[in-house]
Every structure is written in structure tokens, then in C-alpha cells.
Amino acid sequence: MDLNLFSTFLAVYRCRSITVAAEQLDLTQPAVSAAVKRLEASLNQTLFVREGRGIAPTGAAVSLATRIEDPLATLEVISESQRELKVYCNESMLHMVAQLDEMAYIESPLEEDKLYDDLITQKVDLIIDVLETKRQGLIVEHLTEEDVVCLTHKQHPLVEESMTLDSYFAQEHIALKIRRGEQNTIDYLSDNPLPSRRVKIETKSISSMLMLASTTDYVASSNRSLAEKWAPPLGLVIHEFPFPLRNLRYNMIFHRRYIKDPFHKKKREQIQRIFANI
């Protein structure tokens, strides 16, 4: 049986109100009502009855609360001591947050719907990515913006000359596939139509792109902080783009159920401090 049903039951039992319990749990009233009904169905007992404008616990509810209150409190203490935040993080920002304790990172999947579905169903606790959403129940907090740069190896012909629009599009390129339809990153970030690039390799990984650029004459692209981290060890040179592109906007996305959660809030504040210092 789902232990969350018992936690929801105890909140309703203590508050004597579906509405107040829902506010404490950061859940909707229908979700709390549904949880109580599921528990009643599993136990085959009525737990609450109407009393005036509120609700009152039945004898079965009083007996259940007495039996589970202490064991659940013990489980919560154990859970808190072993707690770890599961985070979907865009590859381009993993180097910024990888050293934070009590956090386990998974590279963000390409499918946007999967990110949100996994967040809503609590398979992950947080997303750090270049995403915006107005989905109900999700909170978006802005972290930072970064520009995008080009990279070539040190012996590339472009190193000896200033990169122009013509010389950029004359090169062969490595393109980063992103989750928005069939676009790649550069096309997505441009407000104006661009000439077709000569894309030799399309990849889902910035790391693969940089490794390939270090051993070929193909032009790569990356957010600036990742480029500055890996250009020296890989023997790459950073170039500015010869045409305007929007900055990448990185956001932190989480479910509103965690907005008051002390552990979740502490980890969010740690992440915010890291990006505030960029």
C-alpha cells in the first residue's frame, strides 16, 4: 500500500479539514479527497463523516491514527537522513552543480514531455534546463543566461582570420540536436532565418561535439562557460558568432508541492547561489 496515503490521512485527521490539509501538503483538494477515498477503499472502512461545515474522524480513523502516527514519524526521520534530490540537468550546466552534496544528477532527456511527466510523477525532484512552462502546478525560477560561442581546433584555418558570416557558413559543422521539433540549437536561437549550414555530424551531446571538433576541421558550438572549461584541455579556440543569437536562458523547475519543503528549499538555495556567482 502507498505510504503517502497514510501521510495524507494524518494531515486530514489533524486538520479536520480537506482544504487545510491540502494547503499544508501543497496538493489540490481533489487530490487529497481522492487519497482519502483510496485509503477507505483499501481498508474497507469509513474514516471521516460530515459534521456541520467540516468533517469528523470516525472511530476507525481514531484507531488508525493512533496506530500509525509514531511509525510514520520514525519513517520520516529515516527518510530525511537518507534523502537525496534527483535532478534532471542539461548537459551544458552539469559542470556548475555536479559537486553539490545530496543530489543525484541525470542528463535531461531530449523529449520535453518526458521531463515534465517525470517531474509531476515524482520520478525526479527538480529540472535545470533551458525550458519555460506554464503547466499547472509547476514553478519556474530563473537561474542565469549565457551566450553561445563557436569552437575550432587550434590549427583550424579560421584561427588565423576573423570569422565572418561567409566564412562561418563556408565551413562544415557539428550540430546539436535539441528537443524542440526538428531544430538544432543555432536555428532555435536565431530570430532571423539563417542560410543552411553544411552539417556533417548531428549529435545529442555537447561533450561529443567538443571532442569531435578537437580532432576534425568541423566547427562546434557551446554555451560559454562549458566552452571556457574544456577549450584549454582539448586544444580548442573559442570564436564569437558572426551573427546575433539569443542567450540561453537557464531555469530551475519544480513542483509546487515542494515550495515549502525544508530540504528541497535548501538545495534550491544552494543552486541559486552557484548561478548568482557566474
Score class of each variant (00 low, 15 high):
residue 119 L to M: 11
residue 245 L to S: 01
residue 202 E to Y: 06
residue 199 V to D: 05
residue 35 A to Q: 08
residue 127 I to G: 02
residue 14 R to V: 06
residue 240 E to M: 09
residue 188 Y to V: 11
residue 54 G to E: 03
residue 141 E to A: 08
residue 150 C to S: 04
residue 265 K to Y: 07
residue 169 F to V: 05
residue 10 L to S: 02
residue 42 S to P: 01
residue 151 L to H: 01
residue 222 S to K: 04
residue 227 A to E: 02
residue 48 F to M: 03
residue 4 N to A: 10
residue 17 S to W: 05
residue 236 L to G: 02
residue 155 Q to A: 12
residue 104 A to N: 07
residue 108 S to F: 01
residue 259 I to T: 13
residue 72 L to R: 05
residue 66 T to M: 12
residue 170 A to F: 09
residue 158 L to M: 11
residue 5 L to T: 03
residue 161 E to Y: 12
residue 157 P to W: 06
residue 179 R to E: 13
residue 136 Q to Y: 05
residue 92 S to P: 01
residue 29 Q to M: 15
residue 125 D to M: 07
residue 183 Q to T: 14
residue 194 L to T: 04
residue 121 T to I: 08
residue 3 L to A: 08
residue 197 R to Y: 11
residue 107 E to F: 06
residue 12 V to T: 03
residue 80 E to M: 10
residue 178 I to F: 12
residue 112 E to S: 09
residue 47 L to Y: 02
residue 56 A to N: 05
residue 4 N to L: 08
residue 247 N to I: 07
residue 70 D to Y: 07
residue 82 Q to E: 09
residue 121 T to N: 15
residue 128 I to Q: 00
residue 47 L to E: 00
residue 31 A to G: 07
residue 94 L to I: 13
residue 205 S to V: 05
residue 203 T to W: 04
residue 83 R to C: 03
residue 17 S to R: 04
residue 187 D to A: 13
residue 253 I to Q: 01
residue 60 A to N: 07
residue 270 Q to R: 05
residue 189 L to Y: 06
residue 83 R to T: 03
residue 28 T to I: 13
residue 4 N to D: 14
residue 224 R to M: 12
residue 177 K to N: 10
residue 227 A to I: 05
residue 19 T to D: 07
residue 65 A to V: 09
residue 196 S to H: 12
residue 111 E to N: 12
residue 95 H to S: 11
residue 129 D to W: 07
residue 109 P to C: 02
residue 104 A to K: 11
residue 154 K to P: 02
residue 88 Y to C: 04
residue 179 R to C: 11
residue 156 H to R: 03
residue 169 F to Y: 08
residue 173 H to V: 08
residue 1 M to N: 09
residue 22 A to T: 04
residue 82 Q to T: 12
residue 23 E to H: 11
residue 173 H to E: 04
residue 44 N to I: 07
residue 6 F to Y: 15
residue 2 D to F: 15
residue 155 Q to T: 09
residue 268 R to T: 03
residue 212 L to K: 01
residue 252 M to S: 03
residue 239 H to L: 09
residue 98 A to P: 00
residue 193 P to L: 13
residue 137 G to Q: 05
residue 245 L to P: 00
residue 29 Q to W: 09
residue 133 T to Y: 05
residue 174 I to F: 03
residue 257 R to M: 12
residue 85 L to H: 00
residue 232 P to T: 06
residue 19 T to L: 13
residue 104 A to I: 08
residue 233 P to M: 06
residue 1 M to K: 09
residue 260 K to P: 00
residue 215 T to A: 11
residue 247 N to M: 10
residue 256 R to K: 14
residue 256 R to S: 13
residue 224 R to A: 11
residue 201 I to Y: 05
residue 100 L to S: 01
residue 264 H to C: 06
residue 112 E to L: 15
